[in-house]
Amino acid sequence: MTRDNSLQVDKDGNLRHFLCIRGLTSNLLTDILDAAESFAGVTEQTVKKVPLLRGKTIVNLFFEASTRTRTTFELAAKRLSADVLNISVAVSSTVKGESLMDTLSNLEAMHVDMFVVRHAESGSAHFIARNVAPHISVINAGDGRHAHPTQAMLDMFTIRRTKGKDFGRLRVAIVGDILHSRVARSQIHALNLLNTGEVRIVAPKTLIPAHAETLGVHIFHDLEEGIRDADVIMMLRLQNERMEGALLPSEQEYFQLFGLTEDKLTSAKPDVTVMHPGPINRGVEMDSIVADGPRSVILQQVSHGIAVRMAVMSMAMRRVGMGGERN
């Protein structure tokens, strides 16, 4: 995976594309969280819209199914007054044999300003960012097992709103299928950039990537040990569709060992916050009582997703006269 920062950030440090957390500065992450705080206020207005991106066209380019991410990107764009085009490529032109670059060129010819891309292939958002016309910004909405940076930022925003701005005091445990999770990778980079006190990953040995310790985390294979005295527990979804071979004995056995229940939660701090990026496999990753309980902020995460995506889209939108326009 490329770590070419010049792709994401221009020479003045402004966001150009938003592809992965890695390579960004903690200041930029804080800027995104601050901007999201302001945009969260927009939803209190009668007219839940600001005219910031009026006249801009944003294309949601989804090569992989998603409801929550696509709809929150769509709502975020609409609340910025942009025009939105939703394209599910799996069901359109690639079926007819059109190549990715041809699809992009056709959209560019329609004078769009931004692509929001989800793709099953790691690195696809970087590939598109390198190959689009210079006036177009690319936002990564999830690429393979690599990154899902807006999900990580909405999680950081949710932690900041529930626990305050000082991440240094926090012990955060990420629980579940770390191996297949682009969400976990982006979360770990974001938590470390924001100087989180301790970041832990908790999973069976088969669902932890090789060399995970180099990511700056502590590794646990026992749920109760892993969440002991945790301030925040970030559950991950079991990625059934990405599992190959026998990594898990069965969902029931996984729930026995790694499913979050009220009982197991007692080893965490009493005011622990429980998060999940959705969609939840109830009774597999966590008990319904926990998911719907007072410590859960799962639905707040969804609302925060809109504000964070508004922040990222308005910060990445190319400015006229900044070297981004087409000649």
Binding site: N14, S38, A40, L52, M315, M317, R319, G321
Partner: peptide, 13 residues
């Protein structure tokens, strides 16, 4: 906005 871009330090109204 399209000329000067966004200042992230916007306070919520």
């Amino acid at each position: 906005f399209t000329r000067i871009g966004m200042n992230p330090q916007v306070r919520p109204s």
